[in-house]
Design a protein around this nucleic acid. Structure first.
Lengths: 196, 196
DNA sequence: CGAGAATTAGGACAATCGTCCAAATTCGTC
DNA sequence: GACGAATTTGGACGATTGTCCTAATTCTCG
């Protein structure tokens, strides 16, 4: 099999296992079993566990960039694009209730063990923050755009944490309604300001 | 030394280490070094690592109950008590930026590894949720009280997660201002409804 | 087909993990 | 001071960890 192919399978399996079990709790043996490859084979593709982590972070960054690009293309207008982001807590509800937010739980875990790749993991969080800021800028929020972006981002992290703790789908639905009401309030306020 | 004394020192050290490093990342050797006790001595006080975890959760539950009781005594009115809760993200800012929320990170970690004591850890989260609900009930929010309580609780989790990721104190301050404005909006709305 | 490169298999390695035990030490009580 | 209980010590244990190496296998191309 081509090296790139096996390498990709390792990354994909590690991505899923890091999400479901956490980085520190996932061993080479776990990934090997998932890919059905000998343990020693890892050393050919990745010299250390940290290299796998970096590759997984790269993949997640790439995946999220693609997701945001898709929303940029398909969703009509900045408000609807923000709603796309908001609704991922419903779309991915089952996984979030089981494993939490893939972005938030990784950044939290790496920050807590002070891992060198923690900054790279934070880039995924920053990616969403920057994208949201861009949407609010397009909405006409001006200097409040960054503020609003972090508000929505933090909201999603809070909802994910409580969804995992309480496993209550109805709570998630209510919070989505609330933040959408807040969003439309922002839209109305900027529209009003613009017409003045 | 009395057994209860050593036991308490172990629990206190484990509490701090579980918070700073995470449960899974903290070994018996780590705690032993912190308490300056031989590793084997643990077996006399705790048969397994899970027993230490349970004791730490008990301590945290007790500590938080005391904190809430103090707020019940000292703070004047339900609104100010809710503000006490909101402001812990500022009071504990340094630790939160370094290690995240003690409650949220533990529940997240235990949920992810599907640990038997995860439910007990969730009780700490539920403790705050129930207390907040009680405050909103006293504010006169009626059936919206639970909803509002989870909103504030989720908010605190989101702020903690982003504070840890971005390490930006100004963001925390802005979010506190925002949620206090929201809170006063709730107070005003219920006052208005009451006077009708 | 055959030679050389690319890829994989399987295990050795030192370290660390949670657990457990027997011996040594300290403590309280008469 | 002496005896039994309570407490502590230091290390052994099997398992697992990440890392690393060598031999075997598969693939590629002349």
């Amino acid at each position: 099999m081509a090296a790139t192919e096996t390498r990709q399978q390792i990354i994909d399996a590690a991505d899923g296992l890091f999400y479901a079990q956490g980085f520190a709790q996932t061993s080479f043996a776990d990934i090997a079993a998932a890919v059905k490859i000998s343990r020693g084979n890892f050393y050919y593709h990745f010299k250390t566990k940290d290299e796998i982590l970096d590759a997984v972070i790269d993949k997640r960054l790439s995946d999220r960039r693609k997701l945001l690009a898709k929303w940029d293309e398909t969703a009509d207008g900045a408000r609807n694009r923000i709603e796309c982001f908001i609704r991922i807590v419903i779309v991915n509800q089952a996984k979030i209730m089981a494993y939490g937010c893939p972005v938030g739980t990784l950044t939290t875990e790496l920050a807590k063990i002070d891992h060198p790749s923690g900054d790279r993991a934070n880039e995924i969080m920053a990616l969403f923050g920057d994208w949201l800021e861009q949407q609010f800028l397009e909405l006409g929020c001006g200097e409040n755009s960054r503020d609003n972006a972090l508000h929505v981002l933090g909201w999603s992290q809070g909802v994910s944490t409580l969804a995992q703790a309480f496993k209550d789908p109805a709570y998630v639905e209510r919070e989505v309604s609330k933040i959408l009401t807040w969003l439309d309030g922002i839209v109305a306020a900027t529209d009003q300001k613009r017409s003045q």
